[in-house]
């Protein structure tokens, strides 16, 4: 069954790149800047590159877009995925170049990465591995104890993490990260001079700080999982 995805275009970044990854996973992608397409779509993807404030301004500048998103995601509970700044915009506030309001769907702030080692490069750019939350890890350890390491199966509790290696590498480019107020909103973390939230999920809302569309097999699997997700 083909899913229709609305991929929101507000003038930012590598849109084509994101669109083709969802197409590869079998979705019918509509790249759009019209609010009415949001109401029609079965699933919604919000990409984003650049600064938090600019992205929020770009999104708000599209007539009726923020209202349409609130309606589709919060009221109608359509599955939503935010990528990179598109995930950060879920926060109540972003602190990049001043304080800016976000969509506010999840409590918390977007802050500059706090690096314990000042020789680390900024932005955090490249392939880094994910750590899944407490419940996911326990499940993994239980499954792995009696099997040889190359046969370890990881049975995630969250459907978005299905069929992934236990600590998969994904591609990041960012200098800021979302710090959710509720620990339960963090689905995966990553380490770069300290731990930060790499994936969030609550109800029908999910997001990744990294770029699944650029993360080869792991990323395509996550996109597939999103298309099959029935929150």
């Amino acid at each position: 069954m083909t899913q229709t995805i609305a991929l929101i275009d507000y003038g930012s970044g590598n849109l084509r790149s994101a669109a083709k990854a969802f197409e590869k996973a079998g979705a019918q992608v509509r790249v759009t800047n019209h609010a009415e397409d949001i109401s029609k779509a079965e699933r919604i993807v919000l990409p984003g590159q650049g600064a938090f404030g600019d992205c929020m301004r770009g999104l708000s500048a599209l007539p009726g877009m923020v209202e349409a998103l609130n309606e589709a995601v919060l009221k109608k509970a359509r599955p939503f995925f935010g990528i990179c700044v598109g995930m950060q915009l879920l926060a109540a506030r972003g602190l990049e170049h001043g304080t800016h309001q976000g969509l506010g769907w999840l409590d918390g702030e977007v802050r500059e990465l706090q690096l314990s080692d000042s020789s680390l490069k900024i932005p955090h750019m490249g392939w880094n591995n994910l750590r899944f939350g407490g419940a996911e890890v326990r499940r993994f350890e239980a499954a792995s104890s009696s099997e040889p390491s190359n046969l370890r199966t990881f049975e995630p509790l969250h459907p978005l993490l299905k069929n992934l290696p236990p600590s998969p590498y994904v591609y990041f480019v960012h200098s800021y990260a979302f710090a959710p107020e509720q620990p339960g909103d963090t689905l995966a973390s990553c380490d770069y001079g300290g731990s930060f939230t790499a994936m969030v999920a609550r109800g029908n809302i999910a997001g990744a700080q990294f770029h699944p569309e650029k993360s080869q097999e792991t990323g395509l699997q996550m996109i597939q999982n999103f298309l099959e997700w029935k929150p």
């Binding site: 590598n14 084509r16 790149s17 990854a21």
Partner: peptide, 25 residues
């Protein structure tokens, strides 16, 4: 499905946008 950098003859913001729309990251 990995990051793709494209260069050569990029002279304007429009050139950048065109390459991004072609699928460059």
């Amino acid at each position: 499905f990995m990051p793709l950098t494209v260069g050569g003859g990029v002279r304007s913001v429009d050139d950048i946008r065109t390459l991004l729309l072609c699928g460059a990251d």
